[in-house]
């Protein structure tokens, strides 16, 4: 059990790291979007526009904070806070590397290794609905209410296949704790395939990816903030740092979901056939595992941006139909097959 000081340092580190990645993501999103769309993204604010997120941050902080006259003041203010809080606190149980040895003490690179593991993330994820609901309702704007309603329905519909895909993973690894799942993905199986989750659970991976995109309100499921249809959905009336909280909360959500995908299906910090702890010192191993984990997460962050500018937005009834009529039966079938597989190979 580590002391309070180390845990607080880890919390601060994760908080700043996710915020930093969120700001970097705004730059990657705009540049990536531009390059995919046959134009360049921002390239004036610094070389290749790298200072654009800084400019955006300054703009968001210094803009006038406008609250609509008939809006419900408390709900309007509470919306972004209730959206950003679960986003920032969900990362507490996700590991971001293996252990590191600093000053003689062994520190695991995870804020809290609880026995209920990722169920904490499921709980926190279901709380993030409230930020959208309150933001939409408190704005006193029919587009916002529509966006809030649609988003609520979409989020709670896609929590079911999300949870079921995670359940199949739990069945496979036999534990809820994400750190133990990362340990279970070392080595090879069938002689040549790395022991990663994607080779044992391909259908689960696809289901989890689709449900993760729906949970993050990203295209093709971004109807709640459909920019061309309902103005900006639930965050129409928000400006300055309140909008900043919504946008940053969304990017931090994306980061947490990518980290979950990597931990469950891509072996967290394990390289395919190489065991790094054998030839690296303890400090170097900690840093190397952090780097490997981050590179894998970076690929999935890029995938979020890439898919956004490839696939058109789904219609609302298509979203609901996909969630209830396609993904849930597939998730149940996946659970059944995994249960059979585990039963006959245990």
């Amino acid at each position: 059990m580590e002391g309070w000081g180390i845990i607080i340092i880890k919390i601060v580190f994760i908080w700043t790291w996710t915020l930093l990645i969120a700001t970097l993501m705004t730059w990657i999103e705009r540049r990536g979007a531009g390059l995919i769309q046959d134009r360049l993204g921002p390239n004036r604010a610094g070389p290749f526009g790298i200072f654009q997120p800084l400019a955006d941050g300054i703009k968001l902080f210094t803009k006038e904070d406008i609250v609509p006259e008939k809006a419900h003041k408390i709900l309007f203010a509470l919306g972004p806070i209730l959206f950003a809080l679960p986003a920032f606190s969900a990362y507490a149980v996700v590991p971001f590397g293996d252990k590191i040895v600093l000053g003689g003490k062994e520190i695991i690179l995870q804020v809290a290794d609880v026995s209920v593991g990722f169920l904490y993330i499921v709980a926190i994820g279901s709380m993030s609905v409230y930020g959208i609901v309150l933001g939409g309702w408190g704005s006193n704007n029919k587009y916002s209410i529509l966006g809030g309603l649609r988003s609520t329905a979409q989020l709670i519909s896609y929590e079911v296949p999300w949870g079921l895909a995670l359940l199949a993973a739990v069945l496979l690894y036999g534990t809820f704790s994400l750190r133990d799942m990362a340990f279970a993905q070392q080595g090879v199986f069938l002689g040549f395939l790395p022991n990663w989750g994607i080779f044992k659970q391909p259908l689960g991976f696809i289901l989890f990816m689709v449900a993760a995109y729906a949970e993050a309100n990203r295209v093709p499921f971004d109807l709640p903030e459909a920019e061309s249809e309902i103005v900006a959905g639930y965050h129409t009336e928000y400006g300055s740092m309140r909008l900043g909280l919504y946008l940053f909360g969304e990017y931090v959500n994306i980061y947490t979901l990518s980290a979950l995908i990597v931990t469950l299906y891509f072996g967290a910090w394990n390289l395919p056939y190489v065991d790094m702890s054998k030839f690296l010192g303890p400090v170097a191993y900690g840093l190397a595992s952090f780097l490997v984990f981050f590179l894998k997460v970076a690929f999935f962050l890029w995938l979020f941006v890439w898919v956004r500018w490839t696939v058109p937005r789904f219609r609302y009834d298509q979203v609901m139909g996909l969630g209830w009529k396609s993904l849930i039966p597939l998730a149940l079938i996946n659970l059944f097959i995994t249960a059979l597989f585990v039963q006959f190979t245990a």
């Binding site: 169920l119 709980a123 994820g125 279901s126 709380m127 609901v133 809030g148 609520t152 329905a153 709670i156």
Partner: peptide, 19 residues
């Protein structure tokens, strides 16, 4: 408690209120 009560049942109640 958080997942089911606060995250699903209460969301449904809020949904109905909004509708």
């Amino acid at each position: 408690q958080v997942t089911i009560y606060a995250g699903a049942i209460l969301v449904l109640v809020v949904f109905v209120i909004m509708l």
